[in-house]
Amino acid sequence: MKFLLYVLLALVVVPLQTTLLHYAGVFGVRPDLGLIAACLVGFLGGELDGLILGLMLGCFQDMLSAGDLWINVVTKGGSGFLAGLAGRHMAHITPAVMTAGLAIISCLSSAVFLYSMNPAGLDEVWLGVRSTVLVQAGLDAAVGAGLYLLFRQRWSDDRMVTEGAL
């Protein structure tokens, strides 16, 4: 049941990301809803949930992106897993922790993208960091924290240990 829910979530999030989200862009950079969804589920549902949703989202995103076919699968799956690990070692997840965690994971994910682009020199790396990595990290953190606050009432503060349920 949960797996189906994740499939549905992925089927909603990725088309939303490619179509309507450019209205929410800042300096031409959009929040990565796939990454946010994977991280939120990882934080709250555990690393396996985060990993599975991340892999699904990454797979769908790769189909609708001009980049290599592995890159979103790896970054989104990794982000979900990392968020799950981070969430497991925290006694209590607060919006501030969520914001910081999302920003860090977003930066790490963007670093993989930046590396895969084969930047010509430090200037291009710095340009990528300034124009995309930091902006996207801020957006991801803000949107993720907002969604967490929105849905916090529906989740109990105790993390759902659901590996067996899948």
């Binding site: 990725v14 490619t18 179509t19 950079v29 995103q61 992106s65 001009a66 980049g67």
Partner: peptide
């Protein structure tokens, strides 16, 4: 019908 799914490529669908 859409834009690239990431911020890293200038693409469209």
């Amino acid at each position: 019908i859409g834009r690239d799914a990431t911020n890293w490529y200038r693409g469209m669908i």
